[in-house]
Amino acid sequence: MADIFHGAAWLQYALGGLTIGAIYALVALGYNIIYNVTEIINFAQGEFVMLGGLFGVFYYQTCGLPLGPALLAAVATVALVGLLLERYVIRRARHATVLSMIIVTIAFSILLKGGAMLAWGKDPYRLPPFSRSGAFLWHGVAVQPQALWVLGIGAVVVGALTVFFRTSFYGKAMLACADNADAARLTGIPVRTMVLLSFGLSAAVGAVAGVSICPITLMEYDRGALLGLKGFGAAVLGGLGQFYGALVAGIVLGLAESFCAGYVSSGYKDAVALVLLMLALFFKPEGLFGSKEAAGLKRF
């Protein structure tokens, strides 16, 4: 009996880790999309997640839309915020170095956080779970259906993005911009449009993460920074620009945190993520799935 119970705890930690890991992976994907096209690391990525959740609440509760359309509207709105960031901020600074643009994104993230605080206040908000059923027990482990939604959405987004970048015309064109913007322009690729598209896409992915975790974790104006940091850790650990790398690294981070909280102490949980990140940077700076050669060619 004691043995079975022990197994339940182990499984419970694993499930918690998978869920939170899928969220980190979705945030990491957002970093990767923009990085792949522009080599910019967009530190406003965490704020896109926060905005996704809060706009979901706005459309569902304030505007009274049904849940599905409300979530789609939230994702579209945040994608628009991403487009505006590119069009009116990044594009104006396009002659600056990549490092300056990264700092610009930090400024934009502070702006978004402050704006969200004014618009929504400091209270947390929640959305109802996507499927109405409550938590169920499976082998003595409590499973929230919403956690399955998060995992499923994470997997679908990774798959879709990989297909998009590997096979579609637009995807390939976007990758070409990162490899060599001048050469891409010479072959007739509208580089500016591709960069614009990457910000919109990345913001949309962030918003998807935001709306899907809001029923589990609630959402408030200052949640973005920490999610952004963990997601960045996952992106670097998996190798910047690698979609499957981000997925695996995000889940590794989530599991490491959850097991640490369960078997060591929850006080050290955040340290685990950062220690993993530092180990990766010391011993394999190109990330678990990145190639050394490709990393050598990047400016950042």
Binding site: A9, Q12, A142, G267, K269
Partner: peptide, 17 residues
């Protein structure tokens, strides 16, 4: 005796413990 961060998103591990 478990401690967690003010911005933590998941407390199932602490409660399982």
């Amino acid at each position: 005796d478990e401690r967690y961060g003010p911005k933590d998103t998941d407390l199932t591990a602490q409660l399982t413990k």
